[in-house]
Amino acid sequence: MAQKPVQFTLNGEDKAAFASDGQNLLDMLRRGVGDLSPKYGCGQGACGACTVLIDGEPCLSCLTLAETVDGKDVATTSGLSSGSGIHPLQDAFMRNFAAQCGYCTPGMLMAAKALLDRNPQPSRDDVVEAISGNLCRCTGYEPIINAVLEASRSGASQPNG
């Protein structure tokens, strides 16, 4: 089986891995470089649990051929907290009970981050649209929407803020 070298940055850190033929990015992140924050829910693009940012844009890592991120910048939930501090989005999720089982949370956080990076003051409809590709079987979505809106008011879009 052919192995292709892939060099990319993961949450700002240089990484090198080998992508096997047809391997998706989710698998390379989890098994190749040990970042277990993006989750495998369906492998079909339907659940959004595997959402990561590639060059700042939200993408489904299960539907992305791993070798296509060569030279790119990948961001996952692992990179949200800095030191012992958590990201305002994570904080807002906690305060709003936006995570129950938590399986959808990493994908929700990255979808929300993609929104706030581009649109720091979103409307409620903007938030619904931004997480429309992410399924949650626990919360009924309201707490998640409220958390994202609260984070936007507290300035979650500031770099590292």
Partner: peptide, 9 residues
């Protein structure tokens, strides 16, 4: 077409 993470791709 799909959600935001589909449309980027």
């Amino acid at each position: 077409v799909g959600g935001p993470a589909i449309r980027t791709t």
